Amino acid sequence: MKLEMHALMTERLSQVLVPVLSQQQPLDKALAALFATEKYSVKEQANQVQLAQQLMRGLSLYEALADCRFVEQPAKVWAALASWHGYSVYGQLLPDLTELQGRAAALPAHILQGCPDWLEQLGQQELGDSWALEREALWARAPRYIRANWLKISTSELQQALLAEGIESRVVAGVPTALEILSDCALFQSRAFKQGWFEQQDAGSQWVADALQVKPGSRVIDACAGAGGKSLALAARMAGKGRLLAMDVEEWKLATLQQRARRAGAGTIETRLISSSKTIKRLADKADFLLLDVPCSGSGVLRRNPDAKWQAPMRLAELKALQRDILSRYSKMLAIGGELLYATCSIFPSENQHQVQWFLQQRPDFVLEQEQTISPAATGFDGFYWARLRRQAVITV
Rank of each mutant, 00 (worst) to 15 (best):
R315M: 08
R315Y: 01
L316G: 01
L316K: 09
L316S: 01
L316P: 13
L316M: 02
L316E: 15
A317L: 00
A317G: 07
A317D: 15
A317I: 02
E318S: 13
L319T: 06
L319G: 00
L319C: 07
L319M: 07
L319Q: 05
L319V: 01
K320S: 07
A321Q: 06
A321E: 09
L322M: 07
Q323T: 04
R324N: 01
R324Y: 00
R324Q: 07
D325S: 10
I326N: 11
I326E: 14
I326M: 10
L327T: 03
R329L: 09
Y330I: 01
Y330W: 07
S331R: 06
S331D: 09
S331A: 05
S331K: 00
K332S: 12
K332R: 14
M333D: 13
M333E: 10
M333P: 15
L334N: 00
L334D: 03
L334R: 06
A335I: 00
I336E: 11
I336T: 04
I336Y: 09
I336W: 05
I336D: 15
I336N: 06
G337Y: 14
G337I: 03
G338F: 09
L340A: 01
L341G: 05
Y342N: 13
Y342F: 12
A343E: 03
A343P: 10
T344Q: 14
S346N: 10
S346L: 11
I347C: 14
I347Y: 15
F348W: 15
F348D: 10
F348Q: 08
F348S: 05
F348M: 12
P349F: 07
S350V: 08
E351M: 01
N352A: 02
Q353S: 08
Q353R: 13
H354K: 10
H354A: 12
H354C: 11
Q355R: 06
Q355P: 08
Q355C: 02
V356Q: 15
V356F: 13
V356E: 15
V356A: 05
Q357A: 10
Q357R: 13
W358D: 11
W358F: 05
W358P: 15
W358Y: 03
W358T: 06
W358H: 07
F359T: 04
F359G: 11
L360S: 00
L360G: 05
L360M: 07
